[in-house]
Each structure stands twice: as C-alpha cells, then as structure tokens.
Amino acid sequence: MAHAHHGPDYLAHHFDTPKQQYEAAKIGMWIFLAQEVLFFSGLFVAYFIFRKWYPEAWSVGSHLLNWKMGTLNTAVLLLSSFTAAMAVRAAQIGDQKGVPDKDKRKFGGQAWTGHFLLLTFVFAGAFMVVKYFEYTHKFHVGTLPGQYFGCANFECTGTMSEELVEELRAAIASAHHNAGPDLVPYHLRSFFGLYFVMTGLHGIHVLIGMGLIAWIWNKNRKGEFSAEYNTPVDNVALYWHLVDLVWIYLFPLLYLID
C-alpha cells in the first residue's frame, strides 16, 4: 500500500481524512459513554428498589452523610466540568496565527489549554480530598457497609462507638421517616453498602479521569494539539463530563433524602 500521499502527521494510516478519524473517535467515545451509563445504572436500580423497601434506612442513612461536604463537592465538580469545557475550547481555537489581534478569541491556544486542564486536575483532586475526609470519618465512626456497620475501623467489638450512637440519634431525629427516636433501621447497612459502592466507583472514575487529564496535559505541553487536531482533549473532557453527570445524580440521591 502506498503511503506516499497520506495526510498530516496525526492522521493514522487506516483513515482517509482527519474528519473521518475525528468522527470515528467521537462516535467511539459516545458509545463508550453509553456503556458507562449502563454500568452505573445497576447501582441506581438497586438504589431505587431499596429506597422503596427500606425508606427509614434510606432517610436516616442520608442524614448520616454530610450534605455540606456533598454540596461543596458538587460545586467543585461543576467547576471542573466548566474548566474542562474551556480547555477543549482553548484547544479548538488553536494558536490563531495570522488572525488580526482584534479578531482573536480570548482564552484560546496551547497555553490556555494547559491552564484549564491543570485547573480541572486541581478541582478533581479537591473533590477526592473532600471524599477522603468523608470516608475516613465514616471509617472512624463505623458507618460502614453490611456486616461492618457499627464496627469502627472495621473492627467489630460488639459495641457501637459513642460517636456513632450520637450521630445516629441526631440523624434519626432529623429524618422524616423514622420508627422511633432510638430505633436504628437495620437496613442502614444496605444503605452504606450502596453508598460506598456508588461513591467508590465514582471515585475510581475520578481517579482515572485525573490520570487522563494529566496525560492530555502532557501531550498538550509537547504541542501535539492544534485547531485541526485536538480529539484527545475533546474525548477526555467528554469522559470527565460524564463523571460529573453521575455525580449530579448521586449527590441528591445520597445526600438529600428527606
């Protein structure tokens, strides 16, 4: 096969045009995102069924979570989505060589792409830091999944910690669904089972996203992207937005149950 006529450097040998390559990459990414939707869907199905079955547990459980931290994290993640979108925009604008100064778009070009990616990375990190505090608190108190519920730091001593008892009282008092002031719903353990799986898998997605953003940032630093070719930035941003989308649902469903 003659390679002689083949197009720009970034064009892989099996594609005919950059446009074909771009559209294939985008289609692949969107199909992958659909896959992610179905992946998380199982958790949401379990969530709704158990919420219906065990409303007390779900209500009390959500009051054991710190909704302020959840709100903070939501804001942080929305900001990161914004910066990710801006990074794509900066990459799409490119270096604007030959464009008269007055027509130049702001926040465009390689440098801004880098800045925005870095910001996205920082916000993602901030999200994980907040999650870290939430998790360690739960480990410490013993709001843990399944058979470990009530076992501070996964050590089952047979008694709940004072802190947990206190938290439980407060949560029960503020939950609309409760059976009595000192009745702890047994199925809290299922709630925290789902809580940890949901936020844990989401957290893993955030970590993967951070890795991808770092990778793209480095590519951008090396000047691999231009107005003509920036598909990886685009696709990583898409992935990142999906992570955000999942959180948009997780937040009210886990933290804000009446």
């Binding site: 709100t71 900001l79 604008i93």
Partner: peptide, 28 residues
Amino acid sequence: YYVHAHITPARTYVLVLATLLFLTFLTV
C-alpha cells in the same frame, strides 16, 4: 477533509456554570 469544530463563546460556558450552581443551590 478537515474537522470543523463549533466553538462556543466563553460567555456561554460561564452562563452554563452559573445556571448549574444555581440549580445545585435549588436542589439543596
């Protein structure tokens, strides 16, 4: 042959972000 991407104005993105934060506030 080449990709022709649509470039959204930065202001739109800022507006979108503001709306999202507002909706977060609303849901709380």
